[in-house]
Design a protein around this nucleic acid. Structure first.
Length: 422
RNA sequence: GUGGGCGUGGUAGAGUGGUUAAUACGCCCGGUUGUGGCCCGGGAGAGCGAGGGUUCGAUUCCCUCCGUCCACCCCA
């Protein structure tokens, strides 16, 4: 028997309501905030991600789905959404439109990881990007969007952490100091091999190490914030000020660094405050160097990615009530061959009038068809008898209260066409 | 990639080295040959993740693989 590939999942009909709920909220809010949808291909040239995300990041070195196609092109399934959007920005000359460009996307993301709860090899991300402005208020708007969306969906137990990792110049200094600190502190002797690797490849990530021994050293390590230039510090202050005005609670976490190389200045993360491990629902920040790195002019940008599966898990775990859609519908049943013809006609009329309807199966008894109607929560059942016998040969029955009346053909059609059916 | 738990019909979940592998839910049919939900009766559906080994005999013991879950790593 075939099974879905490891780390992939079917989204079955009974969970679609959560997806609809998420999308409706996300797309509506996008429109309110002035973001427009963009869909980019799910795969891109491998090089785009190598240059965009960074050669030394875990995502690129060990998590990409890469292959060579029949034309010998190196292809990678997108392991995140931002690089593609930026590529499209450059390729389609969006810099000629009024800046900033505000876009959102909803797409599959592929990472070759070991699956566990809240982590898949194909998952979905909703994300937004604002490209073309340095304005710190835009950083805050991105954060505010994510926060507002999660609140709107009904999540209450969420925490926002923010940090600034400055620009390249700030960071170079910081990294020098950081390396110096680690060298002088005798840290290397007894610490995790991951970090010893990181110190040369991606020193910032050391700050994120969960190893308890490493954590001791992190406590006393130099603080990134004190390396920010005056201008960049001001930028960060402005972001915080906006958040305060918007009454969004945040925590500053100076050890927050993201796993993608392109981030600069503001970085942030929103997690569920349950103590589960895979709890980051949103991650994002500013990426001022990215567009240039992948071949565009120097262009700033800021955005986030939101893990849809993780948000939906939270919706389910928190038992958030979804708005109930009234589900009015008719099942047409019939008793004879001639009434079957009528049923077919009525079913067509119902559908023409945008009424959800189905024709009963002729292989089932009336009783069985009624059971079916009941199980599928039809609101109404129409039983069509033999028109030769009497005038009002159609039974119109409401399943939720059991009320029924005998009507004729004209009355049924009136009910369906004059929107009396609701 | 590393470490640990698990793997029985659609789902949940018993069970045993040896005749037809419980049970519940769900599904189908029936219970006045024109009426549902409750109730009752009946029925279909797994040979116990895959392969190999031990044994007279394994779903049950052993090995490998695969999958799944959890933790690490990393991230959404």
């Amino acid at each position: 028997m075939f099974k879905s590939i490891r780390g992939t999942k079917d989204i079955l009909p009974n969970e679609q309501k959560y997806w609809e709920y998420f999308k409706t909220n996300a797309f509506d809010l996008s429109s309110i905030f002035g973001f427009k949808r963009i869909d980019t291909p799910t795969f891109e040239s491998t090089d785009l991600f190598l240059r965009g995300i960074g050669l030394d990041t875990d995502i690129v070195t060990k998590e990409t789905y890469s292959f060579t196609d029949r034309g010998e092109n190196n292809i990678t399934l997108q392991p995140e959404g931002t690089a593609s959007v930026c590529r499209s920005y450059i390729e389609n000359g969006m810099f000629n439109q009024p800046q900033p460009i505000k876009l959102f996307y909803f797409t599959s993301i592929f990472r070759y990881e070991r699956p566990q709860s809240g982590r898949l090899r194909e998952h979905h991300q909703f994300g937004i990007e604002t490209i073309g402005s340095h304005d710190p208020e835009l950083d805050a708007e991105i954060i505010s969007f994510a926060w507002t969306l999660l609140k709107k969906i009904g999540l209450t137990n969420i925490n926002l952490s923010i940090n600034s990792i400055g620009d390249i110049t700030d960071r170079k200094q910081f990294i020098t100091e950081l390396s110096q600190y680690y060298k002088n502190s005798g840290w290397a002797k007894n610490n995790c091999s991951d970090c010893i690797e990181r110190i040369s490849t991606n020193p910032l990530r050391i700050l994120d190490c969960k190893n308890s021994n490493c954590k001791n050293y992190i406590k006393n390590s130099p603080n990134m914030i004190s390396f920010l230039s005056e201008k960049n510090l001001k930028h960060f202050e402005n972001v915080k000020k906006y958040l305060e005005l918007a009454k969004i609670n945040y925590q500053i976490n100076n050890n927050l660094v993201r796993g993608l190389d392109y981030y600069t200045h503001t970085v942030f993360e929103i997690i569920s405050d349950k103590d589960k491990r895979q709890n980051a629902m949103v991650g994002g920040g500013r990426y001022n160097g990215l567009i240039e790195k992948i071949g565009g002019n120097e262009t700033p940008g800021v955005g986030f990615g939101m893990g849809v599966e993780r948000v939906i898990n939270e919706i389910i775990n928190n038992k958030i009530k979804l708005p109930q859609k009234e589900n009015n519908s008719i099942l047409f049943t019939y008793l004879t061959n001639s009434s079957k013809s009528k049923a077919i006609e009525f079913n067509i009329i119902a559908r023409k009038n945008n009424i959800k309807s189905e024709l009963a199966l002729s292989t089932r008894s009336l009783k069985a068809n009624m059971r079916y109607a009941n199980n599928l929560k039809f609101s109404t059942i129409v039983i069509i008898g033999d028109s030769d016998e009497k005038l009002n040969y159609i039974t119109y029955k409401e399943l939720n209260n059991g009320d029924q009346k005998d009507i004729n053909e004209k009355e049924l059609i009136d009910l369906m066409t004059n929107a009396k059916f609701n």
